[in-house]
């Protein structure tokens, strides 16, 4: 098994899971508020909903991510591969989550939203990875 390119596995997992599609649908629906609702505070709410959307999308595929981490550990994948996988998933999810915000927000808000989304999704995936790692150690012991 070629596990050298973490980003390719990440894209495959994203495309095969339903999280990506859920996120796309929700982001598209949120565009309604971006376009039609003229409220000064709507942008902050869209940033929050976008972040929750990213987290939910990742959670819906959590089984696939968990299984993949297990396989990567068993096959002896190097830490950069896992990091690339985690970052690719996080960045893609964060970018899709940014769609409703990008038209309304200024540069600083966009960067903030992107950072929040990436941190949230990376933390979640890393937590899953740590759980898998811990369980694997326990089962081998």
């Amino acid at each position: 098994m070629d596990i050298g390119q973490g980003y390719l596995i990440a894209i495959k997992i994203l495309v095969r899971g339903r999280g990506l599609y859920i996120q796309l649908v929700v982001s598209t629906l949120l565009l309604y508020y971006t376009i039609f609702v003229k409220h000064p505070q709507i942008v902050y709410l869209l940033i929050l909903v976008g972040m929750l959307n990213v987290l939910t999308a990742l959670l819906s595929d959590i089984g696939s991510h968990s299984a993949l981490f297990y396989v990567l550990r068993i096959c002896g994948a190097k830490p950069p591969t896992i990091t690339t996988y985690v970052l690719t998933i996080a960045v893609l999810a964060a970018l899709i989550g940014l769609v409703p915000v990008i038209a309304l927000a200024d540069f600083i808000k966009v960067v903030t939203a992107l950072t929040i989304n990436i941190i949230a999704s990376t933390s979640l995936l890393y937590y899953v990875f740590l759980t898998v790692k811990k369980n694997l150690v326990l089962s081998i012991a």
Partner: peptide, 20 residues
């Protein structure tokens, strides 16, 4: 924590609805 996330999302959507 999933349940908390779901409830947070419901609250956010309700505020979204209120603002519009």
């Amino acid at each position: 924590p999933l349940l908390v996330l779901a409830l947070l999302m419901l609250s956010a959507c309700m505020v979204l609805s209120a603002l519009s």
